[in-house]
Amino acid sequence: MTDALLEVTDLHKYFGGITAVDGFDMTVEENSITGLIGPNGAGKTTVFRTISGFHDPDDGEVVFDGEDITGAPIHEVVDAGITRTFQEARTFPSMTVFENLLVGRTGHRGETLTAATAGSRTYSEDERAAIEHADQLLEYMGLEDSRDQRADELAVGERKLLEIARALMTEPELILLDEPMAGLPADVTEDVVEYIERIREERDQTFLIVEHDMDTIMALCDSITVMEAGRTIASGTPREIRNDETVVEAYLGEESA
């Protein structure tokens, strides 16, 4: 066995007569920051949505931590340890920062199977633990002063950090970031990059990132998978990808042309 945390094999997804994903393969190593790139319409979003349970694949397999989660409903994927963020920092706008973190934190994730089935953790114990966890994360992400502010009152960078905090609340092993830098000013991008690296190191997290900002991807990722027209065309270190002719032709060439 390798130390692959996520293994996607021969994934297919069709919408009516359109083939969105056509035999996609990828591996995400534990504790890595892995990038998924490709030209517009390559199927990156569909891959993301399929891994996170928003789509049922038509064929192929998604194995996470040795467990087959192909086609599992979203909350089961979250319970298995995968959560995702969305483009443009989605939050629950009219709820406070603190409330944003508490969403969904009841009785879904007993620490062990016995604790969950024996009912030894009561509802209120669950809630207390969630509240404590939320406050710890707010402090970790430097959001403690905004705790009782409404999410829509936050600056764009704080909203992004709140979204990452919300993802961490689910106690994931793998966080899927969907274009985390889209629409962010340069100084905020730096902040987010720092947080991602810090979280990977201090909290032992693995990240899978779809991102258009090539500089960020090349600097941040240990490993990159490139897709085009629904399939994997290359994967390797940023250095290998930069020098891969197929990739340059399919993607980077198009960008710089």
Binding site: S52, G53, F54, I74, H75, V78, D79, T83, R84, T85, F86, R90, T91, F92, P93, S94, M95, E99, N100, V103, G104, R105, H108, R109, R166, A167, M169, T170
Partner: peptide
């Protein structure tokens, strides 16, 4: 409230 506000985000939070 979260589910009413943004269903897919609530689902991704484990609801």
């Amino acid at each position: 409230r979260a589910t009413a506000s943004n269903r897919s985000l609530a689902l991704s939070s484990g609801v």
